[in-house]
């Protein structure tokens, strides 16, 4: 759903929920994930709705993920690094919420 206007830069390997993924090194993680076709970054706290980035400038906190074990990291502000472990906090919807 997103495409890149210029040529891809050097790719590095990260893991997203344990799966290896190649992303452009140095690009803000939120942009890189959107380009990789991932638009849902977490489920909301009460309604368990799918949510993804909104403002991409550090204000809204809708793009947060667990990065290298640290929770609530704004992925729009973190450049992609080789070996980054990304947990997208998208648990299955509990049955009573579905």
């Amino acid at each position: 759903m997103f495409k890149r206007l210029d040529g891809a830069g050097p790719l590095v390997t990260v893991t997203v929920d344990g799966q290896a993924l190649q992303l452009p090194g140095g690009m803000p993680l939120a942009a890189a994930l959107l380009h990789a076709g991932i638009a849902t970054f977490h489920r909301s706290v009460r309604a368990a709705e799918p949510r993804g980035p909104l403002c991409l400038m550090g204000s809204c906190f809708q793009c947060v993920a667990v990065i290298d074990g640290v929770a609530n990291q704004r992925t729009c502000r973190l450049p992609v690094r080789a070996g980054m472990a990304i947990e997208l906090c998208v648990p299955p919807v509990p049955e009573d919420a579905a």
Binding site: M1, F2, K3, R4, L5, D6, M27, P28, A31, A32, L34, H35, A39, T40, F41, S44, E49, P50, R51, G52, P53, L54, C55, L56, M57, C60
Partner: peptide
């Protein structure tokens, strides 16, 4: 408006401006 795929106008601009990432559809 909470659906993934809704961004602020500034957010879409930042994706294009700093990462050269634009919507494909």
């Amino acid at each position: 408006w909470t659906l993934p795929g809704v961004y602020t106008l500034g957010g879409l601009q930042i994706l294009a401006k700093s990462s050269a990432i634009v919507p494909a559809g």
